[in-house]
Design a protein around this nucleic acid. Structure first.
Length: 529
RNA sequence: GCCCCGGUCGUAUAGCCCGGUCAAGUAUGCGGGCCUUUCAAGCCCGUGACCCGGGUUCAAAUCCCGGCCGGGGCACCA
């Protein structure tokens, strides 16, 4: 049973699922292909399927669809520490999804074989040995190929040979890829040619393409045993039925697959689940395409699956986007069949609202320049609150002692522009100064007063600062579209205490996340303003 | 080319199934104000949309037809 989890209340309600009463308990599934990690686009079917199951007190299933070891090779290479199956589980757990059952299709081949046999016996499928090209000609003309009329017995015999990796082409002494496929008998005049007698199984030479999961999990013998691999439509059709799936939520690119899979259900006398197709998701400034992302990583454009520029869940997570934010976006977009392009503004705004109350504030000056304050009468104390309103979180207290009545601080170069001689400036939580002199690299100012109330009437700029004795050099990586900018500066030294992964706000700079701490450097990632 | 599916403020979404309550709601953005020791957050006010054309009807964002535009599919991928 799925438990409700802690999540910011979603102001939007999901529309009801169709025909819930007809089915009894709602069962949904998320069925990723482990040939790559999940991205924001995959979060849509995952979250919606999970959330509907939760809403109806139903069951949510995770199913890995890894039935093509040739062109959609599962991403699994324990020697290099890469395991997409586990990375996907991690992404889902991060999103807060829990599943009550998990299946891996490559482990279920025997099941698919038995249903293939059943389908052949019912006259619903036949072994086709036509060359692909030749067959397409028949198809385009809406004609039956010679194999279509094969007797059931002959089909069963051929199927047996195929499953055992034995040759089926007369005069050939071995089985090769492309020698045969198992086709589902559909309607040869169907307006969509791809529906006409679609392929249920094809040959994948296990010698050439041993399935990585079988190989690593069960060893070479098992991996070399299987020659016939079901296509998506076959495996999916069988599994959705066997697993009792009642509601399928998937992207609209799958809508024709519903039509194809329906044929199997008809032959078997099964009831087809409710299928809901939603549109595609786009994220402004990025590409939500597995192949394009993979290509970028391979070409070295990105540092890995979790590059903060990437819309992969790993990338978003590394960047500091919260799972709650992803939830809100997905729930907000809903199940409309239209495509939706999510704006970064929106994503950031949601994330910021969640982050703002829970995150501590720290001083940071990018691109520091010196500010020398003259005539400082005595030691100054700065109380830097962790949070402006949640004062119970405490503060850092800094005691700054002037030398020869002078106090040297650093402020951001971007604030240098607003320094005009004679201007009164408030150094946040510290004191007020009057600007005396501004040059390229240094500002001289005179101590004016301590309390902010003394200069309120001047409406002074209020800026952040750091003291050299209480500072640490940090860098902030700023993802900007396809670029990665690095901003260097000084932060107050208490950031040394932060743990990797901590999210904070650099005052007047933006929200950042501590990405890495080396003995020599603290490196943050810029989340958003 | 053929076959599906869509088009509501800049963006996202509600409403469309069951026509009137929609001179269209919400979020975000933008403008203004308040608050504030951050140019953040919060609060208040404002701005801004039914793709076009016909039809049905007393009445259409909602139903029908056509056009235009967008997306998807047309694999021995999922």
């Amino acid at each position: 049973m799925l438990k409700s989890r802690e999540r910011p209340s979603e102001e939007k309600k999901l529309p009801p699922l169709p025909n819930v009463n007809k089915w009894g308990r709602v069962v949904t599934r998320f069925a990723p292909n482990p040939d790559f990690v999940l991205h924001l686009g995959s979060a849509r079917p995952a979250i919606l399927s999970y959330e509907y199951a939760r809403l109806y007190n139903g069951k949510f299933i995770l199913r890995f669809e890894d039935t093509d070891p040739r062109t959609k090779r599962p991403l699994l290479d324990p020697d290099r520490g890469i395991d997409a199956y586990e990375m996907i589980r991690e992404d889902l757990r991060w999103l807060g999804l829990r599943w009550s059952e998990e299946y891996i299709q490559s482990e279920r081949l025997e099941i698919y074989y038995s249903y293939a046999k059943k389908l052949i016996e019912l006259g619903g499928a036949y072994v086709c040995t036509c060359p692909a090209e030749k067959w397409r000609e028949y198809r385009d003309r809406g004609m039956a190929c010679p194999c279509r009329n094969r007797m059931i017995e002959e089909n069963l015999e051929l199927w047996d040979r195929l499953v055992n990796g034995q040759p089926v082409i007369p005069g050939k002494n071995r089985l090769d890829e492309g020698d045969a496929v198992l086709r589902v008998k559909t309607d040869l005049s169907h307006p969509d040619p791809s529906v006409r007698d679609w392929v249920a199984f094809r040959i994948v030479d296990p010698e050439k393409y041993p399935h990585p999961y079988l190989l690593y999990r069960y060893g070479r013998n098992k991996a070399l045993r299987y020659w016939m691999w079901p296509t998506y439509n076959f495996a999916c059709a069988i599994d959705d039925h066997l697993m009792g799936v009642t509601h399928i939520l998937r992207a609209q690119e799958h809508s024709i697959n519903t039509v194809k899979q329906m044929y199997i259900y008809k032959y078997m006398g099964w009831k087809y689940p409710e299928a809901i197709h939603f549109g595609r998701l786009k994220l402004e400034g990025t590409v939500l395409s597995k192949s394009r992302i993979r290509e970028g990583i391979e070409r070295g454009l990105f540092t890995g699956f979790d590059d903060p520029r990437l819309p992969t869940l790993a990338g978003l997570r590394r960047r500091g986007i919260l799972p709650e934010t992803i939830w809100r976006i997905i729930l907000d977009v809903g199940i409309k069949p239209t495509d939706a392009s999510i704006s970064l503004e929106n994503l950031f705004s949601i994330n910021k609202k969640i982050l703002d109350p829970q995150v501590d504030r720290y001083m940071f000056v990018p691109d520091p320049v010196k500010l020398v304050i003259e005539d400082v009468p005595s030691e100054l104390e700065a109380v830097l609150k962790r949070h402006p309103t949640r004062t119970e979180r405490g503060a850092r207290v800094l005691k700054l002692r002037p030398e020869n009545s002078e106090l040297t601080l650093y402020i951001s170069r971007s604030d240098l522009e607003l320094m005009k001689v004679g201007l009164i400036v408030r150094l946040m939580e510290l004191c007020n100064v009057t600007v005396l002199e501004v040059s390229r690299d240094i500002i001289r100012a005179r101590y004016h007063s301590k309390d902010v109330s003394e200069v309120k009437k001047f409406e002074p700029p209020i800026i952040q600062w750091v003291h050299p004795a209480y500072s640490v050099e940090v860098s902030v990586i700023v993802p900007e579209g396809m670029n990665l900018k690095t901003v260097r500066g000084l932060a107050e030294d208490s950031v040394r205490q932060l743990e990797v992964g901590a999210r904070i706000q650099f005052v007047r700079f933006g929200f950042v996340k501590l990405d890495e701490r080396t003995p020599s450097e603290l490196r943050f990632i810029y989340i958003h303003p």
